[in-house]
Amino acid sequence: MPRKAKESFTRPTPAALASKIRTLTPTMTRSMQRVAEAVAGDPAGCAALTVTGLAERTGTSEATVVRTARVLGYPGYRDLRLALAGLAAQQRSGRAPALTTDIAVDDSLPDVVAKLAYDEQQTLADTAAALDTVQLEAAVTAAAGARRIDVYGIGASGLVAQDLTQKLLRIGLIAHAHVDTHLAVTNAVQLAAGDLAVAITHSGSTRDVIEPLRVAFERGATTVAITGRPESAVTQYADHVLTTSTARESELRPAAMSSRTGQLLVVDCLFVGVAQRTYERAGPALAASYEALAHRHR
């Protein structure tokens, strides 16, 4: 019988909360944005408030506060309060991630370079903080033992899918990147238990990526989702979810561009883990590929 889609709930750590707020606030309703902006601006003060108190402070309802907590990845407001207390403690120690400044049209190139470099560094730190190493370990195990690995991605995520497959091919694994949904689905039909399917989508709602993952999931393949939205539709068909962060979205740098930094970090972590796990095969394969490339430049 085909497997049923599962529900997922991954609570962000306090270190990842600031990143979640930056990433998800633009997708919220205006009333939820007021709650998110309040907790981002004063986590210590909000952590001391009851759900009723925060609703009154933001001019919203208790239901809106609870919905905001759930969108940020917490089962309820109590869990969000605990994370806010942890974030406040990090801020006092100087270890909390800061909100970055958007790039303006009239910024000088040195300012653009500085802002992008800061955002990239923060995205990597946020992604590392949010990445569930238990889920990563499970994904590494599945990839290391897979008969075949299919990776799905569209647009900017398609470039990341190709990057992952090129890495896996260099250590002797059978891997394919699919950036066309029709080919992805027709190939997913051929998957079975012992195979691995990986979907890469920052929004978690890209239908061209969700559909082949759903097919692979129902065929019995192990499935992994790499996404910036751990409660999104794609995770319903993922056995393992690897969460990414993203730099602050702006007019000049939409999420599709900024999300790649976090995705590439996760892909590198997955690849290195697989290479370690299969080193007896991966080591000679990497050496052979280096030699082949070096030979071309002689």
Rank of each mutant, 00 (worst) to 15 (best):
A247Y: 00
S245A: 15
D107Y: 14
H176V: 11
I149G: 03
A69G: 00
K20Y: 01
A98E: 15
P14A: 07
A36Q: 09
A48H: 04
A287T: 09
P284C: 03
A161H: 04
Q135H: 08
T50F: 01
D79S: 07
D106R: 08
R30A: 15
V179I: 05
T50G: 10
V209A: 14
T25F: 08
R92Q: 15
V160N: 01
A255N: 02
A16I: 11
T235Y: 04
P97F: 10
D126R: 12
A177W: 07
D180K: 00
L54E: 01
T52W: 05
Q135W: 08
S205Q: 14
Q166H: 15
H176N: 12
D107A: 15
T23C: 14
L80K: 01
V112K: 08
F9A: 06
A88I: 04
Y279I: 07
T243Q: 07
A130Q: 13
A128Q: 13
A69K: 00
L191A: 11
N187I: 00
L124Q: 03
Q91G: 15
L82G: 08
Q190Y: 09
A129R: 01
V198L: 11
D111A: 14
L82H: 08
E56M: 05
S61I: 00
Y237E: 03
T100E: 15
T58R: 06
S232N: 04
A294G: 07
A18M: 12
R148K: 09
T278Q: 03
H202K: 02
A288V: 03
A98V: 13
A238K: 06
A287E: 08
T100P: 09
G220K: 05
I171A: 10
Q236R: 14
A156N: 11
T68C: 12
I210Y: 02
T68Y: 02
T60S: 08
T101A: 15
A16G: 11
I149T: 13
Q91F: 14
I171F: 10
L84H: 00
A89W: 10
R81S: 03
Q91T: 11
P97T: 13
P12I: 03
A156R: 12
H297K: 07
I174H: 08
K4S: 15
A188M: 11
I200P: 12
A197P: 12
G220E: 05
L82S: 09
V267M: 12
A38M: 13
K4P: 01
T235W: 05
T13A: 10
E7M: 08
V66A: 02
H202V: 03
A216N: 04
T243H: 05
G283W: 00
A18K: 06
S157T: 12
V266D: 01
V113Q: 04
T165F: 10
D150T: 02
E120I: 08
I226T: 10
S258F: 04
L136P: 04
H178N: 02
S289K: 06
Q276I: 11
A40P: 10
D132M: 11
L183I: 03
T123L: 01
A255V: 04
F271Q: 01
